[in-house]
């Protein structure tokens, strides 16, 4: 049996808000297989982003276990978690979050710079991915010189360039029009097929859910439904 890329076992995430305990996740158990193209859906406040943050080693659960690539994230230090993100997890944000002082090429190269990849290889791999996401010729442009859709394509290339086993995309099409969103999904689906990279999206858009091979619906921090797309 193939080892899951990520596993959540009875994960709870509670926090205090104005004296009240908010149950962002309340006992979620999930197994995510390699090469999945999975959507985590649900209304605002259902726990989608919290789930992605926990799997992305950005946050720690109140209780339960989050295992990514066979590593229990609770056992990792802050620096080890950073290295886990650097080497195994690609992140795509709703508002792109490219580094404004870097060009498209430099933004894509950045994670490899952290990994200590040689300059020539960095450039070669980055240019190849920029081409794959359809941005050839825009390598030297800074984020301010790109449209929203183009920025998100750079963000996709950045998330994939380090060849992660898992890409977490927090509402990646929310800030672009539906045509651009569709094109972005096509690109990600293509990359999922070509590289076998696991994609997990948080979304409340039907278009994204329709494209996913699996949809996990959350409500009030609990898994309401887990169905094939």
């Amino acid at each position: 049996m193939t080892e899951p890329v990520a596993k959540l076992i009875d994960v709870k995430k509670y926090y205090k808000l104005r004296g009240e305990t908010v149950k962002a996740l309340d006992g979620v158990t999930l197994t995510i297989s390699p090469s999945s193209f999975m959507a985590v859906a649900g209304p605002s406040g259902s726990g989608k982003s919290t789930l992605l943050n926990l799997v992305g080693a950005l946050d720690t659960p109140t209780s339960g276990e989050v295992i990514v690539n066979g590593e229990n994230l609770a056992h990792l230090s802050g620096t080890e978690q950073a290295m886990m993100r650097r080497d195994h997890i690609g992140l795509i944000f709703q508002s792109y979050n490219l580094i404004p002082v870097l060009t498209s090429l430099e933004n894509v190269e950045y994670v490899m710079l952290l990994q200590g990849v040689e300059r020539a290889e960095r450039k070669e791999r980055s240019l190849a991915l920029i081409k794959e996401v359809g941005l050839s010729g825009m390598e030297d442009r800074r984020p301010s010189e790109l449209s929203g859709g183009q920025q998100q394509r750079v963000a996709i290339a950045r998330a994939l360039v380090s060849r992660p086993s898992l890409v977490l995309a927090d509402e990646p099409t929310a800030n672009v029009d539906s045509k651009t969103g569709g094109a972005l999904l096509d690109t990600m689906a293509e990359l999922n097929e070509r590289h076998g990279t696991t994609f997990i999206f948080s979304t409340h858009e039907k278009m994204v859910m329709d494209r996913a091979s699996r949809v996990v619906r959350l409500r009030d921090g609990r898994v309401e439904a887990d169905e094939a797309g």
């Binding site: 950073a82 993100r85 080497d87 952290l114």
Partner: peptide, 11 residues
């Protein structure tokens, strides 16, 4: 974002 991308606190 830099931290999320894997930049260590020291870096």
């Amino acid at each position: 974002v830099l931290r999320a991308l894997g930049t260590t606190p020291l870096r």
